[in-house]
Write a protein that binds this DNA or RNA. Structure first.
Length: 284
DNA sequence: CTTTCAGCCTGACGGC
DNA sequence: TGCCGTCAGGCTGAAA
């Protein structure tokens, strides 16, 4: 009875452009509903995601129990008795907990049905996301760099890896082998707070400035996770918008507008096929 | 080895 | 009003 009362509030766990904080928020939102539950069914309405959804996934997961739910980089890992699901939200994916009777929306592709009556619905208009199955370790996780919020990610490490490399610092910190979970938004914001131009060659940045950058990456991500948590509480009450909309963004999406520090005009350039906004005065 | 780039996909938006 | 081109973006794998 309690579960259905809670479900009636339709707890949304979603995000517009899932970066690490949005994935972490999603993890916190779905975990209490699916951990320890038995999987009673898996419906695949659209198997054509970033990679085709593993053939026979429904049969493989049915009757198994969810023994853990965790995050690595921007991947969510749903660990079962034998094997695990690796879920990536791509560019536009989102997960929500709801009921079987909830009408399907356009772009609802997959539904994981659980023994407590809850279902996990996967929604992804652009279908850049993925649902992968493996009985063993997932290949996608095998060559990832450190988690940005962990102690083994710091300026010294960045400086060491950057030595001799000519790549611009922004695509450098967005490289998953360097550090995971730093997407375009947070890379742009962390570089602004650190006063580093995004097009500066990574190999020509001092360790001291990398200390500053690593620190700001941690702070920017931690702040966003904190706000995601706030948003999640709002969502439980059926209100609110996805996390980072509420966040103050100094540069991302603000090309041509005034710098929040010096009031100069923010410039835009392209680095590694990604738009990059920065202040040519504050960032050197 | 490092770096670049096409491709996957849909919705939003601007120009005509 | 609708059509068409462009853009957005994480990630992979192939090419340079």
């Amino acid at each position: 009875m309690t579960i259905f009362y809670k479900l009636a509030t339709l707890m949304y766990v979603s995000s517009y452009m899932p970066e690490l904080p949005e994935v972490e928020t999603t993890l916190k939102g779905i975990k209490p509903w699916i951990l320890g539950q038995q999987i009673t069914g898996l419906i695949i309405r659209q198997a054509s995601l970033r990679w085709p959804v593993t053939d026979g996934m429904s049969a493989l997961v049915k009757n198994q129990t969810v023994v853990d739910v965790s995050r690595r980089a921007k991947y969510l890992i749903v660990q079962l008795n034998h094997g695990s699901l690796l879920i990536h939200l791509g560019m536009s994916g989102s997960l929500r907990i709801t009921e079987v009777s909830t009408p399907w929306r356009k772009h609802d592709h997959i539904e994981l049905q659980l023994s407590n009556g809850a279902v996990l619905r996967y929604h992804d208009p652009r279908r850049f996301g993925s649902w992968l199955w493996s009985e063993e370790d997932h290949q996608q996780l095998s060559h990832l760099g450190p988690e940005p919020l962990s102690d083994n990610f710091d300026g010294a490490r960045l400086w060491h890896i950057a030595k001799g490399r000519k790549i611009a610092v922004k695509p450098f910190i967005m490289d998953n082998k360097v550090v995971v979970g730093v997407g375009n938004i947070y890379a742009s914001e962390a570089l602004f707070r650190s006063g580093i131009r995004p097009d500066r060659s990574a190999g020509r940045i001092s360790q001291k400035r990398f200390d500053c950058l690593a620190g700001h990456i941690k702070v920017v991500l931690a702040e966003a996770i904190e706000q995601g948590g706030t948003t999640l509480r709002d969502f439980v009450n059926s209100q609110g918008d996805p996390g980072y909309f509420q966040q103050t963004l100094d540069v991302y999406g603000r090309a041509g507008q005034a710098c929040n520090d010096c009031s100069g005009v923010l410039k835009e350039c392209r680095l590694g096929q990604r738009s990059s906004v920065f202040c040519p005065v504050c960032q050197r």
